[in-house]
Design a protein around this nucleic acid. Structure first.
Lengths: 183, 183
DNA sequence: AGCGCAATCTTGTCATTGGCAAGATTGCGC
DNA sequence: GCGCAATCTTGCCAATGACAAGATTGCGCT
């Protein structure tokens, strides 16, 4: 894969995205350095700019990829609200770098066409996850409540803000917390 | 207040913290520039370092201040769960800069003594807000669910991730969503 | 009153970074 | 096999964070 070591890298764009995920998990999306990515990929310091324009361009590509992965994860979880919520949290923990970029729109171009499309796919998957709710309630309110509780738990987990007693198994803890919504 | 314009500023520490809040609301906590703060305060580029050591030191002070303000806001909201939740969201929206720093521990020194104390005060206020819950449920789970839903809604609101139909009144929207927890 | 000293602030410097411009190399279409 | 555009490199500049060394000031102590 990375054996092509001529003047042309051959697969630099994907290599840079993968390196960015590693770097973001180490230092966070804000402290990401394009030059560091170039060093990790073994190319010159200006090579990334050709593929992504600037740092915001790279993060835009990463965010779009993230929304796409989230849409897939939510679709795979099916129509069960609890399963969708757990899938949401699992995605956040398992794709921490993607998740952290996705919900920091000041870091990327939120109006990018490809990104908007991916985000809408994820939104549709989210809505279909809460479609099968017990009738009688306000659907909008219930959907927003479900999204909020899953997103809040995931965010607090990633920020290391939760007390130790919650344990170290995000799926299990998330299932307990989310079950509060579906009595 | 800022009329003392001798060699010594007189109130530089507070001035820098206030300038930092403005700057963070404009460009986010990661893009904060110490040199920009120094320019806003009318001092030399190295002056901030004397009061805070480095950028992480300034953000640590800001986070501690934020947890303190949050503790006050939650205490003022009383023991009602819904009121506490709305107060949490109101704090996030009304003190956006503080809130964004507080839950990004990679930006500051999370083991700072003053900060740990303030965070524990906020945690205590949070727990007392959910203490008066209908008996029968798991208290830990209910507290975590309440925190998650309030935090998630606030985070999604700040990230501009919510659909337009939610409106532009965070308190009102938050009250509706939070009421899902207390039927 | 005045002296010393520490706190406060300034100037100067260096490595790192993002971004731009110009040039080198390569692979692909014709 | 030729031209050309895509890809990558080298070189450069301004901005930044951090550090060192020096200037200025106010406060405590005698």
């Amino acid at each position: 894969m990375t054996e092509t070591r001529g003047y042309h890298h051959g697969d630099l764009r994907r290599t840079l995205l993968a390196a960015a995920l590693d770097a973001i998990e180490e230092v966070g999306p804000a402290a990401l350095s394009l030059r560091d990515l170039a060093r990790r990929a073994g190319v010159s310091h200006a090579a990334p700019a050709h593929h992504f324009g600037d740092k915001a361009g790279l993060l835009t590509a990463l965010a779009a990829q993230g929304f796409d992965l989230l849409a897939q994860a939510l679709s795979a979880a099916g129509d069960d609200l609890l399963a969708a919520g757990v899938a949401y949290v699992d995605f956040a923990v398992g794709h921490r770098a993607h998740f952290e970029v996705m919900f920091r729109p000041e870091l990327y171009r939120a109006d990018d066409a490809e990104l908007v499309a991916a985000r809408e796919r994820a939104g549709a998957a989210l809505r279909s996850g809460v479609a099968a709710l017990p009738a009688g309630g306000d659907a909008d309110r219930d959907a927003l409540a479900a999204w909020s509780i899953a997103h809040g738990f995931a965010t607090l987990w990633l920020a290391n803000a939760l007390p130790a007693r919650v344990g170290n198994n995000p799926s299990k803890a998330a299932r307990q917390v989310l079950s509060r919504l579906t009595p």
